[in-house]
Simulated scan of single mutants.
Amino acid sequence: MSQEDRKTNVPDFLSELDAGVFENKVSAVLNDVALGVLNNGGKGKVTIELDFARISNSMEEKRVEIAHKLKFSAPTPRGKRTEEDTTKTPMYVGKGGKLTIMQEDQGQLFSLQGQPEGKLKAIN
Rank of each mutant, 00 (worst) to 15 (best):
R6D: 01
R6A: 00
T8C: 09
T8Q: 06
V10D: 06
P11W: 05
P11A: 08
E16P: 01
L17E: 01
A19R: 04
G20T: 01
V21E: 06
N24P: 04
K25M: 05
V29T: 00
V29S: 01
V29C: 00
N31C: 02
V33S: 03
V33N: 03
G36L: 00
G36P: 02
V37N: 09
L38S: 03
N39S: 12
N40C: 14
N40Q: 11
G42D: 03
G42Y: 01
K43Q: 10
G44Q: 13
V46M: 04
I48M: 08
F52K: 14
F52Q: 11
R54V: 08
M59Q: 07
M59L: 06
K62E: 15
V64T: 14
E65A: 07
A67H: 07
A67I: 05
H68E: 15
K69E: 08
K69M: 09
K71G: 01
A74T: 13
A74P: 12
R78W: 06
K80Q: 10
K80A: 12
T82N: 02
T82D: 00
E83C: 03
D85L: 00
D85M: 00
T86C: 04
T87G: 13
K88V: 07
T89N: 05
T89Q: 05
P90A: 05
G94F: 15
K95A: 12
G96H: 04
I101F: 09
M102G: 04
M102W: 09
D105P: 04
D105V: 04
Q106S: 06
Q108L: 00
Q108V: 01
S111G: 06
L112K: 15
L112W: 06
Q113G: 09
G114R: 14
Q115K: 12
Q115L: 11
P116S: 09
P116Y: 08
E117Q: 13
K119G: 12
A122L: 15
I123T: 10
N124S: 14
